[in-house]
């Protein structure tokens, strides 16, 4: 098994820094859903990780802990984090992306 980044959406949606999306070395991996937090009563959207593209370098963890100081990202084993965003289930909209969560073992 291997580690992938997992973003705590409750912490992320309370802020709107988007730093992790800018510092990820992999393209199209940390995506942003501008409406993610709104139905939970939180102010902003949230970032999420397309786990099938994540290489597990943990740069986003350093950026979230030390630059943004939100501590919202943790590295977790891919078989223990449940349903996650996967590239085939991400739809792009005009200025937003949406992901339907699914098990990483499905496809």
């Amino acid at each position: 098994m291997y580690l992938v980044a997992n973003i705590d959406q409750e912490i992320c949606a309370a802020t709107s820094c988007k730093l992790c999306t800018q510092y990820c070395p992999e393209a199209n991996t940390i995506q942003y859903d501008t409406e993610a937090g709104k139905d939970k009563g939180l102010k902003y959207g949230s970032a999420y990780v397309a786990v099938d593209r994540c290489k597990g370098c943990a740069q986003c963890v350093w950026v979230c802990d030390n630059m943004a100081k939100h501590k919202a990202i943790k590295m977790e084993m891919i078989d223990q984090i449940g349903d996650q965003a996967l590239t085939p289930n991400i739809t792009y909209q005009e200025k937003n992306t949406k992901a339907v969560l699914a098990s990483p073992w499905q496809s």
Partner: peptide
């Protein structure tokens, strides 16, 4: 750069090392 994560980037998956 501020809109990153909300549009499809032109770079795709690549074989470079993690965290490069």
């Amino acid at each position: 750069v501020s809109q990153v994560g909300t549009f499809k980037e032109i770079m795709e998956e690549h074989p470079m090392c993690a965290g490069c």
